[in-house]
Amino acid sequence: MTGFKTMMGVSAVALAAFLAGSAAVAGTLENVKARGKLVVGVKNDYVPYGYLNDKGDVVGFEVSLAKYVAKELLGSEDKIELVPVVASNRIEFLTAGRIDVIFATLGVTADRAKVIDFTTEYVSAAGPSVLAAKEATISKWDELKGKSVCGIQGSYYNKKMTEEFGINLVAFKTQPEAYRALKDNRCIGFVFDDMTLQQKLKEPDWASYKIAVAPYEFQPMAGGLRKGDTEFHEAVDKAIGKAEAEGKLIAWETEFGMPHSDYIAARAKAASARKN
């Protein structure tokens, strides 16, 4: 019986410690400093934000940002642990305490704001755009009404395409099929993630194509933090602001082959104006 009681006692202490630990989320900054390492959730399959390079290292726009934040907090960009996350588990990883911050193509939405806090927004991610031949004269979504446009089955914007723009959507299972069909002139364009299409345009095969219709929406992207973690939140925001002011984000756009966005340029300008 004594053994059992001891066990119960130990469990109770452990439970209390656990509860105290989860109640003290406000202490992430101290934890990170005590640990000497920032644990970040990043993508490893999403060019250009977080992906594996040919050496097998995780690199990308947001990975560079995460390393910069680690350098600001701990003095070295190597004091970091990159944890690969996917869209369906990144918020659980954060709230469960397995990572300190998310830098993984996290779009800012009201639903998510109920569960986590967002850092300052640093990217405005484009929605879908339309890839078409250079000779194409269309430039607006409305002009696609009644036209056959290739797409991908299951894309979140397919309903909007057919309902709102009246597009005759020809949706394929996979991207290679859609690209093939576009080259075959089965459709006048291919509607897909702007960032992916921009990367495609760099391939020599696609030199005679262009982004004919620009994205109709942009979604701000930000880092994700546990709720109410004010001290850590301020420290991370300060680090991001410093990176913007130093023009780092513009340099990373270049480094990772992203088209330069007005959004990031404007933020860099505002950040450096604040500093001076």
Partner: peptide
Amino acid sequence: TVPELMYYAGQIYND
């Protein structure tokens, strides 16, 4: 891409 029953079913459950 023939828009028959399975084509739309897939799109509906993806949405």
